[in-house]
């Protein structure tokens, strides 16, 4: 995502540098050939620009159940890479009130990597591994990035607001048969995940079992068709 942004910016700079000096030169044979060349490169550039601009629009929408980021979360994602093996997602999660005073909202930034794909048939693809990390922040005054000033220095050496999570899971992608539908595919995924604070508790205590500190999340990702 960041890489594509960077490229689109650098393309724009290059394109503007090329155009101006050539437009100022009056018509001559030499310049004409240059102009023809220029139109060709320009159309390529425009195409590329269009493509990069298009890549700023999300390429998928998703809904997720659980995952330490809310009961239900929804968001948008950007898939990129030669075989779309990289994906960056942004999600907003909702945590109901349960036994506390108020419900909570959370924000998540997730980076995932899907190294392999196995085609099961024309429509169905299986990804045996999706893995990565996500940062989750919980909104609300109760949660701080850094402890308030009233505490002596390094009194609590962690943040209640920011969780670092790691995950590994699998997914199945189903390609919709129609070639003109808005969504081109639907992906069902599950992730096993843990966070910094769960993991440190888990590794230090034999008493805690795998399912105490490893969680399970389920999600559906709708892939938008690219023209």
């Amino acid at each position: 995502m960041l890489i594509s942004l960077f490229f689109s910016a650098s393309y724009m700079v290059e394109a503007s540098q090329l155009q101006h000096p050539l437009q100022e030169i009056p018509g001559s044979i030499k310049v004409d050939t240059l102009k023809v060349k220029n139109i060709n490169t320009e159309s390529i550039r425009t195409k590329e620009l269009k493509r990069t601009a298009f890549s700023l629009v999300p390429s998928s929408y998703m809904v997720q159940y659980a995952g330490s980021i809310g009961l239900l979360s929804t968001g948008a994602g950007w898939d990129y890479g030669r075989s779309k093996q990289w994906s960056t997602d942004f999600l907003v999660g909702y945590v109901p009130k349960y036994d506390t005073d108020r419900p909570k909202l959370t924000l998540t930034l997730r980076q995932s990597y899907t190294p392999w794909e196995i085609r099961l048939n024309k429509q169905l693809t299986y990804h045996p591994l999706r893995t990565g990390a996500y940062l989750n922040t919980t909104l609300g005054k109760q949660f701080w990035y850094k402890e308030p000033d009233k505490y002596p220095n390094s009194y609590y050496r962690f943040s209640t607001r920011l969780r670092i999570n790691i995950f590994a899971g699998q997914d199945f992608s189903y390609k919709i048969k129609s070639s003109s539908s808005y969504f081109e595919g639907i992906k069902f995924y599950y992730d096993l995940h843990t966070s910094d604070l769960y993991l440190i508790s888990g590794v230090q205590n034999k008493y805690l079992k795998f399912d105490d500190y490893i969680g399970l999340a389920l999600g559906i990702k709708l892939q938008i068709r690219r023209k």
Binding site: A66, S68, L71, K97, Y98, T138, D211, I214, G215, L216
Partner: peptide
């Protein structure tokens, strides 16, 4: 996948969910 679904007490809503 079905084994994982089976362990549905593994769903963790949020570290500060307050789900007791």
């Amino acid at each position: 996948f079905s084994l994982l679904i089976h362990g549905c007490n593994m769903f963790d809503v949020h570290p500060y969910s307050g789900k007791i």
